[in-house]
Design a protein around this nucleic acid. Structure first.
Length: 205
DNA sequence: TTAGGGATAGTT
DNA sequence: AACTATCCCTAA
């Protein structure tokens, strides 16, 4: 039985909401829906930096990924890339990347058909989604939202969409899948769940 | 509320 | 231009 993660809020840093989870209290998670000001960036850099001098050089070189502060899929490269893959979205490489703090397009400022946000799923989120599916099964999106994504920007529909998208990676042309950006162990877990509970069901048409 | 079709926008 | 991750719409 998969335990539901319990979030602990650590309040705010500027417009950033800080939190950790019980099962990984050493990992600080940040909801990046805020502005980017100099002080915040400096604090983030200090937080993400090494705690001692042993790997200072590695850190300064930028090779120390994935970040313990905030994981993003952008840190992973496709394992096999034969002829240039297309379409994968890449965003926010690090907290001080200008892209990182870009506000999502809000409905008010965009056209009627504007999108609410467009934020990439982190591998942490995918891992959480997989745990939720193994706990409740496929289709219990509202329950999964309540138990595993309570204070997340992800809606129940987002969870459903993401699961569908992940499983697309196992259909024919899996070369182009977002699964290539994930840890092999996580991909394996998703594969096992997918085998047990096929999705989508193909009810329509 | 969910499944599935479709639109949108970022990447190559 | 081709392609897809993410988001939106809506029947049932």
């Amino acid at each position: 039985m998969e335990p539901a993660p319990t979030e602990q809020d650590y309040g705010f840093l500027g417009d950033l909401q800080l939190s950790t989870t019980i099962d990984s209290p050493h990992i600080l998670q940040i909801d990046n829906r805020g502005v980017r000001d100099e002080h915040t960036v400096m604090i983030l850099q200090l937080l993400e930096g090494p705690q001692d001098e042993t790997n200072l050089d590695d850190w300064l070189s930028g090779d120390l990924h994935p970040s313990p502060l905030l994981e993003t899929n952008a840190h992973y490269q496709p394992r096999c890339r034969k002829s240039g893959r297309r379409g994968a979205r890449r965003r926010r490489t690090s907290p001080w990347d200008p892209m990182f703090f870009e506000r999502p397009v809000s409905r008010e400022y965009s056209t009627a058909k504007g999108r609410k946000n467009n934020s990439r799923w982190t591998s942490k989120e995918v891992e959480r989604l997989a745990r939720g599916v193994s706990r409740f099964g496929v289709g219990q999106w509202t329950l999964l939202k309540q138990e595993f994504f309570k204070s997340s920007i992800r809606t129940a529909v987002n969870l459903k969409d993401k699961w569908r998208n992940l499983l697309k990676g196992y259909q024919e042309n899996s070369q182009k899948s977002t699964l290539l950006y994930l840890e092999p162990s996580l991909v394996e877990k998703i594969r096992n769940l997918a085998a047990k509970q096929p999705y989508p069901y193909r009810r329509h048409r």
